[in-house]
């Protein structure tokens, strides 16, 4: 999909630029933007290193495991189709906690493991179960404790207070997660008879 978007933006942009008589501005933008991309990347380096470093301390200290144990009860409500003590629930919680802490690298393998375990519980192998939908919607709504990338870009851009958006991001993601949970729950009740 990105192939079409990238192509479309460049071609449409250049044609509009020519029609607008802004060819010089377009040329300037091409040169400047590539330079800006590198400046941004360098600006990101500091916070990204700090954050991945701190997070690997968290990983080694068993923080994921500790949080996972505390939030387990919530799982029963969200994923009623998973039998007690099935390995799927462990992988799901660990993935969600890793996402919550912003541990992208740790989250993806755990998420793929969770999908594999959910697939074992699936009777109809090419159709998604309610549990899979719930898991993925929670993943895309992704509540993050510290949105490190946004903070890094803000600080690279010279913000006076790069972290001031943490609170608003929490509010927005919590709303999104609740909306996602309600939508999955109501649609799975509605169609359970048909698909399962």
């Amino acid at each position: 999909m990105l192939n079409y978007i990238w192509f479309g933006m460049l071609v449409f942009g250049i044609i509009v630029g020519i029609l607008n008589g802004r060819v010089d501005a377009v040329t300037q933008a091409i040169v400047d933007s590539s330079k800006n991309a590198i400046e941004l990347s360098i600006g990101l380096l500091g916070i990204m290193c700090l954050w991945t470093g701190l997070m690997s301390v968290a990983e080694k200290s068993g923080v994921i495991r500790t949080i996972s144990r505390t939030v387990r009860p919530v799982l029963k409500f969200l994923f009623p189709g998973i039998p007690k003590d099935h390995p799927a629930s462990g992988a799901i919680v660990m993935n969600l906690v890793a996402n919550f802490l912003g541990l992208g690298n740790a989250a993806t393998p755990l998420g793929l493991k969770a999908m594999g375990e959910l697939q074992k519980l699936n009777k109809n192998k090419d159709t998604a179960t309610n549990e899979m939908s719930m898991f993925l919607v929670l993943n895309t709504a992704c509540i993050q404790f510290i949105p490190a990338t946004v903070i890094a870009v803000r600080s690279a851009a010279g913000s006076k207070n790069p972290t001031e958006i943490i609170g608003t991001i929490w509010v927005a993601t919590i709303c999104a997660s609740i909306a996602g949970i309600i939508t999955v729950k109501s649609l799975s009740v509605f169609r359970r008879g048909k698909v399962r």
């Binding site: 998420g111 793929l112 999908m115 594999g116 959910l118 697939q119 192998k125 090419d126 159709t127 998604a128 899979m132 939908s133 898991f135 993925l136 919607v137 993943n139 895309t140 709504a141 709303c175 999104a176 997660s177 609740i178 909306a179 996602g180 939508t183 999955v184 649609l187 799975s188 169609r191 698909v195």
Partner: peptide, 23 residues
């Protein structure tokens, strides 16, 4: 995620994800 386990029919997952996004 769906590709990794060979799911073809994702049912309402995309709709729910987009609802969450809009919210």
């Amino acid at each position: 995620y769906f590709g990794s386990v060979g799911i073809k029919n994702i049912r309402f997952t995309l709709v729910a994800a987009l609802v969450a996004d809009l919210v």
